[in-house]
């Protein structure tokens, strides 16, 4: 393909990426160097690195970062394992497979805020699961009592919401699994665990990496579940970077500081993703 043709083909997506990703990021970087509020939005004041220093010395930012990392470390491996388990089960189903897939996908395809609201309502004081658990334990259950229970709900919701994504990707991967190596392994007397370890998991390796990449980026950006489940109550101490960023921008009205925080968050995501990007690059160069 000639260079001109190549440029013509990639130009539309490059233009869209520049408009929707590069320009906003550049704007955020520039605005991060300014004191910006809703009252001086057309006339921001240049303050150099003051916003960045303020973010990096803000204990609440580091607490939010810590919770974001915990959220990522818990939900990503858990949903991959659960997604694989459900995909393997679905692969065994012969009848009404489409029905089960549709049901399993529901948490993922419902609008996140709506799904989180529905999730919250079932665990509210008068919610279904709260009632059932209270009856089962014969004592009053309150999932919104303190930070511990709310943290559990946030993590539970995170896994519940994203597992269908892993499930459908891995299920699709299982459909491309060649039957011959599996049959050969069975003939050779391999156990289920051995077939998993030596045939199925290696086949799905690249998909695990893909899911992990996407999920880590999603986990870093989580906002809806925090906003809906905590109802902005500070006593829970459950904050992610994105949620604290929202608070700084819209509640505290410190737009410059919020921009600085966004930029630092992007840098943070890159740092976390570097190992995965390196592995992906290695895999691609190995196959070529």
């Amino acid at each position: 393909m000639k260079r001109d043709q190549f440029t013509l083909f990639v130009a539309p997506s490059v233009i869209i990426m520049v408009l929707l990703m590069v320009l906003p990021l550049a704007t955020a970087i520039i605005l991060g160097f300014h004191r910006l509020t809703f009252t001086n939005i057309n006339n921001p004041e240049f303050v150099g690195l003051q916003n960045y220093i303020e973010v990096l010395t803000d204990s609440r930012f580091w607490n939010a970062m810590g919770f974001t990392l915990i959220y990522t470390a818990v939900t990503v491996p858990l949903h991959i394992v659960l997604g694989l388990a459900v995909a393997l089960l679905l692969d065994q189903v012969k009848y009404l497979r489409g029905f089960y897939i549709a049901g399993a996908l529901l948490p993922f395809i419902v609008t996140p805020v709506v799904g989180t609201l529905m999730f919250r309502l079932t665990f509210e004081r008068g919610g279904l699961y709260t009632y059932l658990l209270s009856e089962l334990l014969d004592s009053r259950v309150n999932f919104f009592l303190d930070g511990t229970t709310v943290t559990f709900l946030v993590l539970f919701h995170g896994v519940w919401y994203i597992t269908p994504f892993a499930m459908i990707v891995l299920f699709a991967g299982l459909q491309t699994l060649p039957k011959d190596p599996l049959e050969a392994a069975k003939v050779d007397g391999a156990t289920w665990l051995q077939r998993m370890r030596h045939v199925i998991l290696p086949h799905l390796r690249s998909l695990f990496l893909f899911i992990a990449l996407i999920s880590i980026m999603d986990a870093y950006r989580v906002f809806d579940s925090i906003f809906v489940l905590t109802k902005q109550n500070p006593i829970y101490g459950v904050e992610t970077i994105m949620y604290y960023n929202y608070e700084v921008a819209l509640s505290f009205q410190r737009l410059g500081k919020a921009n600085a925080m966004s930029v630092l968050t992007v840098i943070g995501i890159f740092v976390v993703l570097i190992p995965f990007l390196y592995i992906t690059y290695r895999q691609q160069t190995e196959t070529t």
Binding site: N142, F144, L145, D146, K231, N233, I235
Partner: peptide, 8 residues
């Protein structure tokens, strides 16, 4: 108490 602080 702690629970009262969660009441909107």
């Amino acid at each position: 108490g702690a629970e009262g602080l969660t009441y909107s």
